[in-house]
């Protein structure tokens, strides 16, 4: 049941990301739902699984969001995955504030690295949506998912 619920949540996140990428202009919501999958796997799984997931999610993000420059988000998501994997053992994730901060700060950091690459290579300016708005919204959504009682039970959190 837990496994089925996890797969369902992951599928919903992937479908949600597809919808967002199609309707981002109308919805004006900047979320990175794939990053929530990375956060969950980084926190709950081991080193190799984290690295593999981070690389895959990075490559997919690269394909859709890095102005034709493969490897930028691959690089930044691997760093984020590694940090999440290391840090999550050391902080109290029963505290909702820390869950939110973990998601928001790590996503902001990861996006900042990607943005830095895009700034120097493609001349893209620093994007406040990417550095602030998206991490905060994604962090809030992650917090809502994790703190809902069913998810808490089925996702093995707490």
């Amino acid at each position: 049941m837990n496994r089925r619920f996890k797969v369902l949540i992951f599928l919903l996140l992937i479908i949600g990301q597809i919808i967002l990428q199609r309707y981002v202009q109308q919805l004006k919501i900047h979320l990175d739902l794939l990053y929530l999958i990375l956060v969950y796997i980084s926190v709950m799984s081991g080193f190799y699984k984290t690295l593999l997931t981070a690389s895959l999610i990075g490559l997919v993000t690269d394909y859709f969001c890095s102005a034709n420059l493969m490897g930028v988000f691959g690089f930044s998501r691997v760093i984020a995955g590694f940090i999440l994997n290391e840090v999550s053992h050391r902080i109290d994730l029963k505290n909702n504030i820390f869950v939110f901060l973990l998601i928001a700060v790590s996503l902001s950091f990861s996006n900042a690295i990607a943005n830095l690459f895009l700034y120097f290579i493609q001349g893209f300016s620093f994007n406040l949506d990417m550095l602030l708005y998206q991490p905060v919204l994604t962090g809030l959504l992650g917090l809502i998912i994790v703190t809902s009682s069913k998810a808490r039970m089925y996702l093995d959190v707490y």
Partner: peptide, 19 residues
């Protein structure tokens, strides 16, 4: 762990540099 992460990051940098 650091060696593996650096290797993966290096591979990503190669990917960026090909572009």
């Amino acid at each position: 762990k650091i060696v593996i992460v650096v290797t993966v990051l290096f591979l990503n940098l190669i990917l960026v540099s090909t572009g």
